[in-house]
């Protein structure tokens, strides 16, 4: 389970999240601009500290204000994929992919770069890649670190429709292959409908709704019992 009970005030905006989600499948996090999606992304990643609350993932406490626990981002085991990829511009694709990998990851690099269609691009610098290629490298880089949870912040919003389709298809395939739970943040309902089996809707900094939404891809594979879902 992923248990998120946090509050954070940022000027006039107050984020107040209370949700319990299963630690599997793809959870879609949707909401209009200013609903708190990016704030929640930063808090889950460990880049921002909530004012108070608890975050637990698969039994491991990542943040607990009362107990004084705040696990640093490097130790959270959460892989991040940013909207604009954020690849290291001075490193080749190969070195980007290996940045967070454990020693001896050569075989994993080979299979993953093949799955991502990056085998011919390993020697290139990010500045020489197309938008879709960059996002594939970003996804691969996060997965090479073998995260326990993958957090994706609008990873296809900057891509044109054809590339968007490619990357979404790739995420489905990778999820099927690795089984890594994902939280997919987007403001685009069609992406969420396609990928997510659980949809969390944010509005004005709070959870407005949590609903079962088996995607075409997930339907029948990782259906989540409704008693595992809880909105506070």
């Amino acid at each position: 389970m992923i248990e998120i009970r946090v509050t954070k005030r940022q000027g006039a905006f107050r984020l107040d999240i209370d949700a319990t989600l299963p630690f599997r499948g793809i959870c879609g996090l949707i909401g209009p601009s200013g609903s708190g999606k990016s704030s929640l992304f930063s808090i889950l990643a460990g880049h921002d500290r909530p004012d108070e609350g608890v975050i637990r993932a698969d039994g491991r406490t990542l943040f607990d204000s009362a107990a004084g626990i705040d696990v640093p981002p490097a130790q959270r085991g959460i892989g991040l994929v940013f909207q604009d990829g954020l690849l290291f511009p001075h490193l080749s694709v190969r070195r980007n992919l290996l940045y967070g990998a454990r020693p001896g990851a050569a075989a994993r690099l080979e299979s993953l770069s093949e799955a991502l269609g990056l085998s011919g691009l390993l020697g290139r610098r990010p500045g020489r890649l197309s938008g879709g290629e960059r996002q594939r490298v970003a996804i691969g880089r996060a997965l090479m670190a073998e995260p326990r949870l993958l957090l994706l912040d609008e990873p296809v919003s900057a891509l044109d429709p054809a590339l968007r389709e490619d990357v979404l298809g790739l995420l489905e395939t990778l999820h099927a292959q690795t089984g890594t739970p994902m939280i997919y943040i987007s403001h685009a309902p069609e992406e969420i409908r396609r990928l997510a089996n659980i949809v969390v809707t944010l509005n004005n900094g709070a959870v407005a709704d949590i609903s079962h939404h088996p995607s075409p891809y997930l339907r029948g594979h990782t259906a989540v019992p409704s008693d595992m879902l809880k909105a506070g």
């Binding site: 981002p73 954020l86 511009p89 996060a142 670190a145």
Partner: peptide, 15 residues
């Protein structure tokens, strides 16, 4: 320099 690159490195386990 884009400081988010340092955040990305942190999320990949770098000290």
């Amino acid at each position: 320099a884009d400081r988010r690159l340092e955040k990305a490195a942190r999320s990949l386990g770098a000290g």
